[in-house]
Design a binder for these strands. Structure first.
Lengths: 244, 244
DNA sequence: CGAACTATTGACTGCCATCAATTAGTGTGG
DNA sequence: CCACACTAATTGATGGCAGTCAATAGTTCG
């Protein structure tokens, strides 16, 4: 009986946490590499948080006490110069992880573009789990690799592409990513403002706007409501984007 | 006797490889985290290579068969657009590691700026060692983190800084790095051409040259032979660099 | 429906790119 | 060691792309 009970308890303990069962980001998050006991350990130290559009998940300079896994919505990473100029570093979606690079203080800000859901984990227990779980370490290294690759693509865009090429590259990049997450191909969403896009592309709002208008006149894209964009002629965009 | 012998052999096997004993980059390379047996295993699968200035260590698109540890000299990482425009992604020095991000093919080119010495390791055995050595995994993750951080700083420079700010940031960045490697503070070397610098900063040779001349006229820097530069007024550079 | 914000469009400016010519530096062979 | 050739760097003149300033149009949401 004792034996039965303890067996039952063990199986209970090694089961998938209820919270995670329902999580639609689970198969594309860092969690996917964790066996159930480790997943439970992670789930036990984390908590689900929700942010409204415009809310900060992280302010540059804050003590880096947490890491985040995005389970829904879109956030923007950015950095500020002392005079207020802003560089947007990227837009993250469901399944992306935040907190790889932090030292004692966050070196970037993170802002919710839409309503955002995350799993938030205190850094210390996360770090402890990380040190004891090589699979997680490997997963994070793979993600760091990917981020580095995409940062290099972004660098090339900022350093060497024209305004038009930047806008086309950006649209294609977002479309590809949404498609990979299961969205309709050639349909994408721009929940961010033209200013946010401009700060991502190293341009101004006006220049982004003019480029979009040009693409609209070409009938390469169609602007729908609420920032949705339909790509009508992908080939057109590709040839205007000078993609590597 | 047998016993003595095997003890001797074991101690021989766990000693530091002769090659590594003399290596001046050892304490600042990934090697520093490896205990002697693992270091020996790494040394056994690697080989020392030397490259002349202008030689390619890696061409973009090549099968990514090797990873590299720089033990001397300076290399340049870069990416090309199909029409020949080039973005320089960074300059690496002694102690830096190349090959973190590679998929099946290298996604960047690597060119020697000076005479360069590296330890070159075939990817597969390196990967095997990596999977069995969490300490190495951790070291690579830390380095990936650092690279990501520096890529983000670079992104901000390219997206939001003026020509003058870019040049000053670049000089300060190189000076800091040389100082950290034990060089004289406020003395730095530019073994790369103005074109290389321009491609790093998202500018043209002429603009880089004009900016340098301006700094010379300000007596903020002094140009010496063979691309050496002395920083005369660091504070001047800092205030012109709009550093974060 | 209307207020408030965001995007677009237009006119003009300026920074950096481009084109061109000169100067300086580097390496080589007589 | 010096003269020569070649490449790289600098400087100057001009142009163009994207930025700035300003006004209008369009969205979105209470």
């Amino acid at each position: 009986m004792d034996m039965n009970y303890s067996t039952f308890a063990a199986s209970e303990q090694t089961g998938c946490p209820e919270l995670c069962e329902a999580c639609s980001a689970r198969t594309i998050s860092i969690c996917k590499v964790l066996p159930h006991p480790e997943l439970r350990r992670l789930a036990d130290c984390g908590s689900v948080k929700s942010y409204a559009p415009g809310e900060h998940l992280i302010r540059e300079g804050d003590a880096s006490n947490n890491v985040f896994n995005i389970t829904d919505g879109m956030v923007m990473l950015f950095r500020l110069l002392s005079d207020g100029r802003r560089q947007v570093l990227g837009f993250l979606l469901k399944g992306d992880f935040i907190g790889l690079t932090a030292g004692a203080e966050y070196d970037i800000g993170v802002l919710a573009m839409t309503r955002v859901q995350v799993c938030r984990f205190p850094r210390l227990p996360f770090r402890r789990l990380l040190l004891e779980t090589p699979l997680l370490e490997q997963e994070l290294l793979a993600r760091a690799s990917d981020e580095l690759l995409s940062a290099r693509t972004h660098l090339t865009l900022l350093g060497r592409k024209t305004a038009m090429e930047r806008v086309c590259s950006f649209l294609l990049h977002l479309a590809d990513r949404e498609a990979r997450l299961g969205g309709a191909p050639d349909l994408l969403f721009l929940p961010m403002t033209r200013t946010d896009i401009a700060d991502y592309l190293g341009l101004t709002t006006e220049t982004v706007s003019r480029s979009m208008s040009f693409l609209k006149r070409l009938k390469a894209v169609q602007l729908l409501d609420h920032g949705a964009v339909r790509i009508l002629q992908r080939s057109q965009l590709v040839s205007l984007s000078e993609n590597i």
